[in-house]
């Protein structure tokens, strides 16, 4: 099984984020992490490789900072790192990111592609599905269980749906997006970390994969501004006698929430 895993860099989910004065960008001083959903994708790829052989290729696309997240994946057992790094990728929308990924991936033989269900930055969940569409391969999104049948060149996957789950079957090659619960993550080993340090990243830019800026499709939207969510919370914290607190809470349910 040759598996490709697509990785995205996102702001640390616990970070405090502030908006620049111009209201258009974030102040840049926050830590970045590998998208949490992509960790499940790397883990699943390594498990499949351990079972059936093959190799795991990690790919990330972006203007900067990709090295660190690739190294993390190699430290846990991935084989190849590909980084499409280009300043033109700054602020590119998901559909066009998928176009870049599809251009790179169509030069690599693969049996399956794993993406995270969504990036925790904008929770979009667009790149995986768009990539499957561009490559014209089956897509199963938000999988919580994945069972590969290499002989039959098939996969069975379980994905959560409203009010339950569904089990589906598809031929390989296919693209799966990974949900929490798919597997338990392992920690990188010391030898893995050493190996990751030594291994060279295959660095590409848009030109080298044959994409000119006018290759991108129009993004039909433009950022107008960023703001903080309006909270309007009453913020009343009660203390002391439980009975009294509960009475106030019930009055709140009756008079404001109006559900009693």
């Amino acid at each position: 099984m040759n598996i490709i895993v697509c990785l995205k860099r996102v702001p640390d989910t616990g970070a405090r984020l502030e908006i620049e004065k111009d209201g258009m960008e974030l102040k840049p001083d926050f830590p970045w992490i590998l998208n949490p959903y992509d960790e499940f994708a790397i883990e699943e790829a390594i498990r499949i490789k351990e079972r059936f052989g093959g190799n795991v290729t990690l790919i990330t696309v972006g203007p900067e900072g990709g090295e660190e997240i690739l190294k993390r994946g190699v430290a846990t057992g991935a084989d190849v790192e590909v980084y499409v790094k280009d300043p033109l990728l700054q602020g590119l929308d998901e559909i066009n990111i998928a176009k870049v990924l599809s251009a790179v991936i169509s030069t690599i033989p693969f049996d399956m592609i794993l993406c995270g269900k969504q990036g925790t930055d904008s929770d979009s969940g667009v790149v995986g599905g768009a990539l499957a569409g561009l490559l014209d391969i089956p897509l199963v999104s938000a999988v919580k269980r994945l069972n590969i049948l290499p002989e039959e060149r098939q996969a069975h996957a379980l994905r959560e749906v409203e009010g339950g789950a569904e089990v589906v079957e598809c031929p390989l090659p296919a693209l799966f997006t990974t949900h929490k619960g798919l597997n338990e993550l392992r920690y990188p080993t010391l030898s893995g970390i050493m190996r990751a340090k030594k291994q060279e990243i295959r660095c590409l830019d848009l030109k080298s994969i044959g994409i000119a800026a006018n290759h991108f499709s129009n993004r039909n939207f433009r950022r107008v501004g960023l703001s903080y969510p309006l909270l309007n919370r009453r913020g009343i914290i009660l203390k002391g006698d439980i009975k009294r607190q509960v009475q106030e809470a019930v009055t709140f349910l009756k008079d404001e929430v109006r559900i009693l």
């Binding site: 929308d93 998901e94 559909i95 998928a98 969504q118 904008s122 929770d123 979009s124 969940g125 667009v126 790149v127 995986g128 599905g129 768009a130 499957a132 569409g133 561009l134 897509l139 999104s141 938000a142 994905r159 959560e160 749906v161 409203e162 499709s217 129009n218 993004r219 039909n220 939207f221």
Partner: peptide, 23 residues
């Protein structure tokens, strides 16, 4: 934006040549 829509939106955007905005 359900398990159906989240699966379909990107596939459909690509095939119709439209931008895709989720959430």
């Amino acid at each position: 934006g359900t398990s159906m829509g989240r699966d379909l939106a990107p596939l459909l955007s690509v095939s119709l040549g439209l931008s895709c905005l989720t959430n």
